[in-house]
């Protein structure tokens, strides 16, 4: 029987190693797997590389991991937001490394890892400081830069509904990076609003096929 459900948050994040690259879904506060991030803080892994659009907000979730000194590096497109005071402070003090990646390049580099291709050439960032040191190539008369895949050791995903095979649907703009990140990690862990019986999710509307998912946890199912 194929059953990806786990019974606790501790089980959901078990085995995440020190130094792991963690893909974390969300855009602003929409679609961020807050419970899994809290569990990762509890779990204790250190020297993490976080890949996420933003760098956390307020004092919980990603910000709590950064505040606890557990994040070595963050790869994101837009770290500075209204509530990003924890990241801002660590950045100013030089206690966290930042790799700034244009938003579409971030999602496509993750997609490349999930799709098993060795990178791609993009016209985005050509002639800017974010292209420094990158190989370039003129394609159809236009300059492109080589972008390499971002492979996650772990992906932390938030979905609205899941089934025990790991099929997922999302809610509104909380979808954002979650589906692409789910494809690009050795271990994909999902925090779902609810878990439904097989067959209940409309097969025409499943966004993430369960093949990409390893573990599913839902607070509403927790025992």
């Amino acid at each position: 029987m194929l059953d990806k459900r786990v019974n606790s948050l501790a089980e959901a994040v078990a085995g995440i190693a020190d130094g792991a690259t963690v893909l974390c879904g969300g855009f602003g506060s929409a679609g961020v797997p807050d419970d899994l991030l809290a569990a990762l803080l509890e779990q204790g892994a250190r020297e993490l590389v976080i890949v996420s659009n933003n760098a956390g907000s307020g004092k919980t979730g990603l910000a709590a991991l950064i505040a606890a000194g557990r994040v070595r590096k963050i790869m994101c497109s837009f770290p500075k937001t209204g509530g990003s005071f924890v990241f801002d402070e660590h950045y100013k003090n030089g206690t966290i490394e930042l790799e700034l990646v244009p938003q579409g390049t971030l999602s496509e580099r993750i997609r490349a890892a999930g799709a098993g291709v060795g990178g791609f050439y993009s016209p985005v960032s050509v002639g800017t400081r974010l292209a420094r040191g990158k190989e370039t190539k003129v394609i159809n008369g236009r300059e492109h830069v080589l972008e390499l895949p971002i492979q996650g050791d772990v992906a932390l995903i938030k979905a609205e509904s899941a089934d025990r095979w790991g099929n997922l649907v999302y809610r509104k703009s909380a979808r954002n990076f979650n589906p692409v990140m789910a494809t690009a990690a050795h271990l994909t862990v999902v925090e779902a609003g609810r878990i439904v019986a097989l067959g209940e999710l409309d097969p025409e509307a499943i966004v993430t096929p369960g093949i990409f998912v390893d573990r599913v946890f839902s607070m509403t199912e927790a025992r």
């Binding site: 760098a55 497109s77 770290p79 500075k80 930042l98 700034l100 244009p102 938003q103 985005v124 974010l130």
Partner: peptide
């Protein structure tokens, strides 16, 4: 901290 978001894309 600098932020680029989707501006370059």
């Amino acid at each position: 901290p600098p932020g680029v978001g989707g501006a370059m894309d």
